[in-house]
Computed example of a mutant assay.
Amino acid sequence: MALQPHIGEGAFRDEPKIDEGPIIDGKPTSISTWSAKQLKDCALLPGLFKTINLAYLTSDEKSFGTSTGDRLKSTEDLIQVLRNDANSFIIILNQTHSDREVLSTASCRRYYGPESDTSRAWACTHTPAPGVEEWELKLVATHPSAQGKGLASYMLGLTEKEVVSRFNAREGSRRKAAAAQSHPKMIMCTPETTFAEFYARRGYGKDYVRPFKNDHIGFDINFMSKMLDPKDGDHME
């Protein structure tokens, strides 16, 4: 079964794109891709918040023995992560029979350059190179009950394909005329002690490191990236 990510400027559709997902534990699933604007009326929001918060809580406690609390507290928190940018998107994998059973998710937003406040430990500080369209991976999370089934890799792959599809739709003939000199690039950050190895195994290299410390924990944040091949979207089924 071939999943069908958005082809082209999916962020400007009136409705989210919904596809058939894989069978997990004998049950059918759905894959849906949403823009920040569409999320305001998304019936999956309660399950999405639960999955993201539980995933981050489980990861924090496993790695650091403590948690900093809920990652998201409201729809506004999620839209802020996506920056309400029409180019941003979030992919949700849920049990087909239940809006509340969100198994996994990943979101992505365009990265245009450093924010005005670069003092935040999690803020990217680099400037994109000429000819490189950068996308920042955010909120990759799998419900604890569904972990260990390869869903994080699966969702990462869908996100990369979505970025390539949007890049190709935007570049089109201009990319071909420029002899494919422009490329999409995925960037992300993660605590070195948790998922840095996971992303390294999937082709992400370390760009720079920033220390993080609060009253409870301290660790290094790895800022990582991966160049995507526009040709990967040329023959999508």
Rank of each mutant, 00 (worst) to 15 (best):
Q4V: 09
P5D: 05
G8S: 08
E9G: 10
A11F: 07
D14W: 06
D14T: 14
E15Q: 05
E15D: 01
I18Q: 01
I23P: 00
I24A: 01
K27H: 01
S30M: 13
S32Y: 03
K40Y: 14
C42I: 04
A43I: 10
P46R: 04
L48Y: 05
F49K: 06
K50F: 08
L54C: 06
Y56K: 11
Y56S: 05
L57H: 03
E61D: 14
T66S: 15
D70K: 08
S74T: 12
T75E: 04
E76V: 11
L78A: 01
L78N: 05
I79F: 06
D85E: 09
D85I: 06
S88L: 12
H97P: 08
D99N: 13
V102C: 07
L103M: 15
A106V: 15
C108M: 15
Y111Q: 11
Y112S: 14
Y112Q: 14
P114K: 13
R120S: 14
W122R: 12
A123T: 15
C124Q: 08
H126V: 12
V132I: 14
E134S: 06
E136V: 12
K138F: 10
L139Y: 11
A141I: 07
T142Y: 10
T142W: 12
T142D: 10
Q147V: 09
G150R: 01
L151D: 00
A152V: 02
Y154Q: 01
L156D: 01
L156I: 08
L158P: 02
E160M: 15
V163L: 11
V163A: 13
V164W: 05
V164H: 03
S165G: 03
S165I: 02
N168L: 15
E171Y: 02
R175Q: 11
K176P: 01
S182K: 01
H183G: 00
I187G: 00
T190Y: 03
P191Y: 05
A196W: 01
F198Y: 00
A200K: 05
A200C: 04
A200L: 04
R201F: 04
R202P: 03
G203C: 04
G203Q: 09
Y204Q: 03
P211C: 07
F212E: 00
F212K: 06
I217W: 11
I217K: 10
G218N: 11
S225M: 12
M227E: 02
D229P: 09
D229Y: 08
P230I: 04
K231H: 13
D232V: 12
E237P: 05
E237F: 02
